[in-house]
Design a protein around this nucleic acid. Sequence first.
DNA 1: CGTTCAGTTGAGTTGCTTCAACCCGTGTGG
DNA 2: CCACACGGGTTGAAGCAACTCAACTGAACG
Lengths: 228, 228
Amino acid sequence: MLNTSSEFKNAMRRDQHAVNKGTILKSEGDETHARLYVEEGWLAASKSLEDGHQQIIEFILPGETYDPTAMNGKTSFLQIEALCDAVIAPIGKTAWARWLQEDPDLRKSERLRDLAAQARQSERMLRLGQASAETRVAYVLIELFIRVSEGGNQCHGKFHVPLSQQQIGDFTGLSSVHVCRTLRRLNRAGVIKTGDRMDILIEDLPKLAQLAQVDIVALRDEITTDAA
Amino acid sequence: MLNTSSEFKNAMRRDQHAVNKGTILKSEGDETHARLYVEEGWLAASKSLEDGHQQIIEFILPGETYDPTAMNGKTSFLQIEALCDAVIAPIGKTAWARWLQEDPDLRKSERLRDLAAQARQSERMLRLGQASAETRVAYVLIELFIRVSEGGNQCHGKFHVPLSQQQIGDFTGLSSVHVCRTLRRLNRAGVIKTGDRMDILIEDLPKLAQLAQVDIVALRDEITTDAA
DNA sequence: CGTTCAGTTGAGTTGCTTCAACCCGTGTGG
DNA sequence: CCACACGGGTTGAAGCAACTCAACTGAACG
């Protein structure tokens, strides 16, 4: 999905290292890398309030990159955590700047990535602020479904997300208890079928999209960088 | 705040035009401009659900620019509206690209702008998902206070926002009624004093910051592009 | 002087939260 | 091998924060 120079890909392959589930990555201090590439596993970027409540701002899926930089190159303003065992590759600031300089394709794909990320955030804010629990949960299922099947992984509505209901709650702004109830209701209504530790099977995609209040085709266009 | 080439500034001055309060700008269709510069007045970028509920994603203040482009240069995925009479200058795609190409300072200030915008969005999502009405309202007051006093407009905690309580509600994810009650409570507690049509006087900034759960100094650094 | 529009306040409702108990699959140490 | 702890998920009960509905106020305006 990041079809750029092979030098770029090779570099990312070179610096890979594994991180365990639950590890919190700190990019503060040295701040020598401009970007995080995820080869395997899921990460979450989150912020928290003093009272302990945390909001997951973004999930970072395999094959995606993320820029944890804050203003002025100071400490990162959000926390990045491995949601399961993962393999990541940090990309150095100077190398990144050089690639960006030299490779117009990379610049372009970066711009598309940014726009997609922003579109996703807008959709989420809309639902965070205005939608019911049912709509929020339906939406996250659809967003994740679209993202895991991006790049042509046909999976006929069956997929797995390495998230606890607590984490879905932190993403949707709901309590884990209410996430559970809402998922149960969707199950009972025959819209989805959930299996072990968040195995999802979407049984009635149109119905789910209606609950999420999205137009799937338009949404896929908006939030992914697929050329298709 | 956008200290770039004078050619750039002149071009923006040339193409200015006025829009009336309530006007909805459509950037769809031709899609020849890459950016919107606001000389005067406030704009809001929002999205809405089918049921009519809308979420304001961002306010655009005088002196700021905004990129309404969606994926693939297709139709804009959000709606931009003038919150009061305003003067704006659209910036053409090709000219913008050329400036960006030629002017390293503009590229840098653009990057800072992006980071600040993203930091603001993260803060808002955190509160949208996890915080009480009181915290959300206190936060929006502080964010807007910081932004209107950016660039050294010292105003000793006194400022004006051209927003109805309904619009504050659309921004914070609350009903206008509840925004009203929350503001009243803040008034009674002596934290702020509200005057005609959203004239705000912050009487106890530390207390307001505590309610908003923010560290003002850190927040200012994070969400603005001030060099200071 | 009537109309309109934003803000204010009260009353009643509800959707989501919190707390708590319980279940189940997995891992672990005596 | 059993006992036990542990982390997630599920469910019920009770509480409350924010919502809706509705009435009223006051300012702005033709």
